[in-house]
Amino acid sequence: MPDRRTLSRWGFMVAGMLGAIAIIYGAKFVAPQAHGAPQPTWIVTFTLASALAAAWAMVFATLAFRRLDEFQRAASKFAWYWGGTLGLVVSLPAYVFVYLGGLHWLDPAHFHLGAELAFAFRLGYGIAVVSLLLGFLVALGVWRITRQ
């Protein structure tokens, strides 16, 4: 039987995930998706909902992290740093392969990478990687400032 600390951590994790999913799905009722061209109302509503969902998940992730003891926190930091770094390293050749049309080369019938899709793919990868690096730099800055 897990101890109370572990149970409350799991509770926060489940609440964080379910709450974030509920917020995203709830946005569907506020701004139903229309067929055809993307509607500004739909775009704004879902962007705000995703920001709210991310904030919700972040709050509960923080609460769950605080329930970890120092050994578990060390494990989490190790996994995030080295796992994240390894994932980032692996993503670069994968990105180049897809961007240059590697999927089309492997399966021409299902994958087409025109100029628009290539731009969207580059933008998506860029947002993820730049956000990750900025987050790392901000966290590093905060850590140093608060310890000087």
Partner: peptide
């Protein structure tokens, strides 16, 4: 007020406490 895994890691010398 730590997990059992922490105690095990401490005892086996695989983790040094703060």
């Amino acid at each position: 007020d730590v997990s059992r895994q922490s105690v095990n890691a401490l005892e086996t010398g695989k983790y040094d406490p703060s």
